[in-house]
Simulated scan of single mutants.
Amino acid sequence: MKKLFAEFFGTFWLVFGGCGSALLAAGIPELGIGFTGVSLAFGLTVLTMAYAVGHISGGHFNPAVSIGLWIGGRFPAKELAPYIVSQCVGAVVAAGTLYLILSGKSGFEIDPTQAGAFASNGYDSFSPQGFSITSAFVAEYVLTLFFLIIILGATDKLANGKFAGLAIGLALTLIHLISIPITNTSVNPARSLSQAIFVGGEPLAQVWLFWVAPILGAITGGLIYKNFLGDNK
């Protein structure tokens, strides 16, 4: 149960801190943190929770990461479903908390026809810069693939484990710097689902891509590291 609580709180913090920074702090005139600040916020959520609870659960906070670690031989199959459920619940509770906070602002409402509404992910007209479904799929696939290679490499028994959280957090920052204009950045099915539930409409209909592409990317990354990069001796 400690592992599942750790995944719940870690994923809550990721969504609350990352999506919260986009919703609450990014667009304030002259003082807003902007594109770079949101990217850094997502990285900081993972970095801080990796050191806070990573020693308890492994610090996945992402269904795609759990699946990729399983494929890479670092995580038992029997724990996959409980981890994924804990991550999704943590993400949805975080999104609900953000909704409750934003509801206290006069005039707040979610427009399900707007790209990036409530920090949701999307493609075509729901992409921040109008990128196609193909572009969105390729970006989410490739970025999650490399995210898994970084995670597996940074946590390898031959690596300096003290810096694993830093490397992984900075990797997520870089991923957001690359892909916010494309999909509003997912690489995390739980993060995408939590926001889409509150938006509904087309963003919810498009959430399938933000499960399929990251999971396929994670599987590929896990296989690449296990077979070509890891120490198989």
Rank of each mutant, 00 (worst) to 15 (best):
E7N: 14
E7T: 04
F12G: 04
G18A: 12
A22I: 11
I28R: 15
P29Y: 04
L31I: 11
G32D: 14
I33D: 02
G34T: 02
V38F: 01
V38H: 02
S39W: 00
L40S: 01
Y51D: 06
V53T: 10
I56D: 13
S57Y: 02
S57M: 04
N62G: 08
N62Y: 12
I67C: 03
W70K: 03
W70P: 05
G72M: 08
G72E: 04
R74M: 10
R74K: 12
K78F: 14
K78A: 13
E79A: 13
I84V: 06
Q87C: 08
C88P: 00
C88T: 14
G90I: 01
V92C: 08
V92Q: 02
A95E: 04
A95H: 13
A95G: 08
G96N: 08
G96P: 03
L102K: 07
L102T: 01
G104R: 08
D111E: 10
T113K: 14
A115F: 03
F118M: 03
S120G: 04
G122Y: 01
S125T: 11
F126W: 11
Q129V: 15
Q129P: 06
F131S: 04
S132Q: 10
S132D: 13
E140Y: 01
V142H: 02
L143Q: 13
L143G: 02
L143D: 03
F146V: 14
I149E: 05
L152K: 02
L152T: 10
G153Y: 03
T155H: 01
D156A: 14
K157R: 10
L158A: 09
N160D: 09
A167F: 07
G169E: 00
L170R: 05
L170M: 15
I175A: 07
L177Y: 12
S179L: 00
T183S: 06
N184H: 09
N184Y: 09
T185E: 12
Q195S: 06
I197K: 00
V199K: 04
G201M: 06
E202K: 10
E202R: 06
L204Y: 13
L204K: 05
Q206E: 10
V212L: 15
V212C: 07
L216I: 08
G221M: 05
G222A: 13
F228W: 09
D231E: 11
D231S: 08
